[in-house]
């Protein structure tokens, strides 16, 4: 009873709320870091240095008017944000947060599930999140939303290939699909040193899959006035927004798990702390990239994927296979 019901439920609630909290405060971190990089302060008014800003934003979103446009496809319009947030939150289930800990004499694993297909689970469901964007853009009955959705689907189709190929080389050197096994395999040397090319390919295509700034085609403000979510208001918009940030936190956790050794670190801090330090470092990297690079033109984004990242990822797999065969 305790093993199969109470502990999993407590784990679900704790992991869910911790990650929602982190996602909410990632918005704050993004605004603060961007602000300071552009010689501004960022949010300053609500609470000490704007610390209560995410909560204020959430309350504001709750009280906004919830509009459904006249020529929208109403069912799909309501369904799209739900698809987005579900596909984002479900990814949290397989991420290993730390080594097993002991509470009240029980050993508790710091993940909800460790299926033998962990990494494939993440690749599969992170693609499904894109349906939210595409259907949201299509169902609003707005040409900007439509264009945003179209671009979004084209980008997801392209970049998920190189992302998956980058992961394949990690699977090859680990010999397992399970994320926990991948962390265990990095006890001595982190994968980022064994597979630097795969790391770069994964990072670039991951940022592209997150629709973040050098690749934010689906919601280019200056061309599409916000793209797929242009007709959304109130909590529906907030759900899209939250899904995007949960995706970002999950992506950072994935980079940590696959390349930065997961919870491994010097022993003076517990594993969970190391995990979150690395996650926030990757999130900071994403924000830094956003502050540094301008948006690429649409055809250049496609060229980067098909003519550069994909061949490089394939060659990397070939090289990995050859090295493994020789050794």
């Amino acid at each position: 009873m305790v093993e199969y019901l109470i502990i999993p439920v407590i784990k679900l609630i704790v992991i869910f709320s911790v990650f929602l909290f982190i996602a909410a405060y990632t918005t704050y971190m993004e605004r603060k870091v961007l602000g300071h990089m552009q010689m501004r302060y960022g949010p300053m008014r609500v609470g000490f240095h704007g610390l209560l800003q995410p909560i204020a934003d959430g309350i504001k979103n709750l009280f906004k008017e919830d509009l459904i446009p006249e020529n929208a496809d109403k069912t799909v319009f309501v369904l799209a944000p739900a698809i987005s947030i579900t596909a984002a939150v479900i990814l949290l289930a397989v991420i290993p947060l730390g080594p097993p800990i002991t509470i009240f004499g029980r050993t508790i694993n710091l993940y909800i599930a460790n299926p033998s297909i962990g990494i494939l689970f993440i690749l599969g469901f992170s693609t499904l999140g894109a349906y939210g964007n595409i259907l949201g853009g299509w169902s609003s009955g707005n040409k900007y939303g439509y264009m945003g959705g179209l671009r979004g689907s084209a980008m997801i189709i392209s970049y998920e290939i190189s992302m998956a190929f980058a992961v394949v080389s990690i699977i090859m050197i680990t010999g397992s699909f399970s994320l926990v096994d991948m962390v265990h395999a990095q006890t001595g040397l982190w994968n980022v040193f064994k597979q630097p090319v795969a790391f770069l390919v994964f990072l670039i295509s991951g940022i592209a899959e997150l629709n973040r700034t050098p690749f934010d085609m689906p919601e280019a403000e200056s061309e599409l006035c916000c793209g797929y979510n242009v007709e959304y208001s109130s909590m529906k918009f907030a759900l899209f927004f939250l899904a995007e940030y949960i995706h970002m936190v999950v992506f950072a956790s994935l980079v940590t798990t696959l390349f930065f050794g997961g919870w491994h670190g010097p022993a003076f801090l517990p594993g969970v702390v190391w995990f979150f330090i690395k996650v926030f470092a990757v999130i900071f990297l994403c924000i830094w990239v956003r502050a540094t690079f301008p948006r690429l033109r649409y055809d250049k984004v496609m060229k980067l994927e098909w003519k550069f990242l994909l061949p490089v990822a394939l060659l990397n797999i070939l090289a990995t296979g050859m090295v493994m065969a020789v050794l």
Binding site: S116, L120, L123, G124, T127, L128, L135, L150, S153, I157
Partner: peptide, 23 residues
């Protein structure tokens, strides 16, 4: 394994292509 391949290949990739073509 086949279940997750079903989701990645069919629900993810192929249906995404079909929706893209429709749009």
């Amino acid at each position: 394994f086949i279940a997750i391949l079903q989701i990645i290949v069919y629900a993810g990739a192929i249906m995404m292509f079909i929706i893209y073509a429709i749009m």
